[in-house]
Structure formats: structure tokens, C-alpha cells
Design a protein around this nucleic acid. Sequence first.
DNA 1: TAGATTGTTAATCGATTAACAATC
DNA 2: TAGATTGTTAATCGATTAACAATC
Lengths: 216, 216
Amino acid sequence: MLEEKAISQAVIRRLPRYYRYLGELKEQKVERISSGDLSKKMKVTASQIRQDLNNFGGFGQQGYGYNVESLYAEIGKILGLDRGHNVIIVGAGNLGHALSNYRDFEKRGFLVVGIFDNNTELEGKEIGSMKVQMIDKIPDFIRANNVEIGALTLPKDQAQEVAALLVANGIKALWNFAHTDLDVPKDVIVENVHLSESLMRLSYNLSQYQAKHKNK
Amino acid sequence: MLEEKAISQAVIRRLPRYYRYLGELKEQKVERISSGDLSKKMKVTASQIRQDLNNFGGFGQQGYGYNVESLYAEIGKILGLDRGHNVIIVGAGNLGHALSNYRDFEKRGFLVVGIFDNNTELEGKEIGSMKVQMIDKIPDFIRANNVEIGALTLPKDQAQEVAALLVANGIKALWNFAHTDLDVPKDVIVENVHLSESLMRLSYNLSQYQAKHKNK
DNA sequence: TAGATTGTTAATCGATTAACAATC
DNA sequence: TAGATTGTTAATCGATTAACAATC
């Protein structure tokens, strides 16, 4: 078997953004685009676009550029969006509720099939077309519904325990919204969304801006 | 005036995580910590920790390490968490609803003072202690309430227009949850939270993992 | 004092950009 | 064919890590 060289996370971070822009171009019926034109739209260098894409194959054609529709499809395949993924949400608070209703995710093949909590008061509560179930139902549910991804939208002191439960039952990817770093086996994928860290970066940049303008 | 050299965004991205770990140590009544011990906890190099912190000042002491409480306070100051920030949320859907109830933000000094939408059906609807207001009330509201930050939790086709409105009324920082890149003057801070891009990165890494294990 | 650990310089590594031959 | 634009190598830039003198 050929050993494929790993793609750097810097490249992977940019891929969804390419996908988004190509999707927009496709909607606008644009047939082809050069790395130069795309670079102007996206405010990155044309060189970076070509380098990034060539990690995965030569999708372009000299003198022509890239075919929008086929490049869009190719990146979708690379991102694993060409097939479905079943997701469960653990934590039926406001954020879990918001995620379970996010229609955009379905468009990309992510289907929320269950929502869980350990608060017995929420048991049976309807959220969209689902009912909140208790956490002890998770193991059977995962097996019965071919669940691949678990989204953790619960307080940080419960996150590690639930993560361990999900991993023990075969979940291979965690989308973690809890304000903590999960300790899981290294073959388990963890994608963190730490909203409070995002807000602190905003705060830092705002403070810098204000400090600079005070001195002027 | 001394020209301070800009700190790289790579460093700023890590600061909130240091802040989180130091907060935990502080809660555990840990008095001091060396870069070596912190590096083991956080799974980064001790060298990186010392380099990062020294961008802002010499907070440590040779032979001793760093005082947890004072370093925590210093990083808080750097991040601008030592004072309040008033926030409005534009978009009263599920996500706006979730953010407006996020108690963690208040702890850091971010106070949600208003929530807006352009759907007249939502006008006056109670969300926490607030009532949803129409978007045309925003200009007066910003001035009356000293609002610094706007969170955009609305569909992508409305985001640019609302961003322009906020900027025209003096908002200097946008926390953008819409799936689009905002075009604003360069002195306006934009912090993006693109959830669908996060999910795609998860999907990519999961696909890679599955492809690798299929071949074995 | 001796030991520990910082702050900081130097070395390494990796990512981005520039350049251009290949080629459609 | 001539012009455009890629794919890819080489050069540059910046970020991370290593090393160690300074010092508490």
C-alpha cells in the first residue's frame, strides 16, 4: 500500500472555505475560474490556492483554470461530504437545541438522529422531530443507528465522562463544545468549538484597537 | 509613543487556552507552576509557553516559575477581560437564543444587552430577561447602551447588510456566525465562528481515519 | 550556596510566496 | 500558433523548538 503523506492541518483548515466559495460560484453558474481570479475573491494568494489543491491532485488545466462544478465536487469528496454521517447530540440545553435544528448540516450529509441529556426533567421533551432520551440509552442507540459522530453540548464537568462513554461504544469522532480538552485515545477525532475562547480573541483584538486609538 | 510590535495571531489563538488552564489551577489552589509542568498538562512545549508569555512581559521568576494567580490576572488583562463589554445579538433564531442565555459569557465580562430580528412575528418575544426588538431600533439602541460588540446569528444573505448597519453606527467588533465572509472597513474586528466549516474539518479527519483502517 | 527555572538567542522546521518551465 | 494558466521547484518568511547564560 502506498503511504500517503499527511496533509497539514493548515491546508485542511482552508479547504471548507474553498468549498464555500466554489459553491457560490456554482450557484452563480460560473463555469470556470483561475487561481488568480479566485485569489482576488478570497483574499489569499493564487500560489497558495494552487499549492493547496495540488496536495490532492491536479484538478486544473493549463491555460483554462479550474472547472467550478468538478472542483466543487472533488473538494466535497475530499471532505467526506459525499456520504451521510449520523450524529447524536449529548446535552439538550440551548446550544444542543440550536444544533439539532440546524438545517445547514443536513445539506452537507450530517443527520442528527438523537439527542440526549441526563436531566430527567427533559426526558421525552420534543425537539424538532426527536424526543430527548436519557444518557443511559446511548450505547444501544449507537449500535442500532450506526452513529459515527457525537456532539457534546454539555457542561465541562460532564464532558470527559460522556466522551469516554461514547468512545467505549464505538464513536470515532467528537464535536466538542464543552470548555475543556478531552482526553481520548489518539485514533478518536476531536474537533473543538470553544466559543468562549473565540470571544476572548475578539476581546483581545478589540482592546488592542482601542488602546491604539486612545493614543492618537 | 513607543511602537509596540504586533503579536502574531498564532500566539493570540493560544492565550485563551493558557487562561483556561491557569483558571483551573487557581481553583485547585495551586500557587505556582513552572513552564515545564504546565507544558505537560497542556501538551505543548515549555519553550512555546515561555516564548508566548514573553511577548507580553516577564511574568515568571527564575528558579520559581510563575505565580498562578497573578499570571491568570495578567492574561485576563491582556485579553481585555478586566472590564465589561456590551453585546447585542442580531438574529433571534435558535443560535441567537442559545448565545443570549450563555451564562459563561457574563463571567468574562460580556453582557448581552439586546437581541434583534427582522421577523415581525418575533417582535416582543421574551428571551431570558430581554424582548426581541426589530432591526430598525438598532441605531438608537447602540448609542443609548454603549454597545461595542455585535453578534451576527442570522442567515448569510442578511449578514453583510446588517454588518454594514452596525458598523455605520459605531460598532467596532463583530462576532460572525453567518456562513459568509464580511466585508467591513479594516479597523473593524471580525471574529468568525463558521460551524459548518468546523464540521467539515471533523468530517475530513474522520474520512481519513476510516480510509486508513479499511486498507488494513 | 546549589538547584531550579526563567528569558532570550540561535537553530530548526514548516508554511507561504515567488518564479517559471510545461502545456493546454 | 500565441496567450493563459497550471503544477511544481526554489526562495523566503515566520513560527516552533532547543540550548544555555542569567538569576532567583
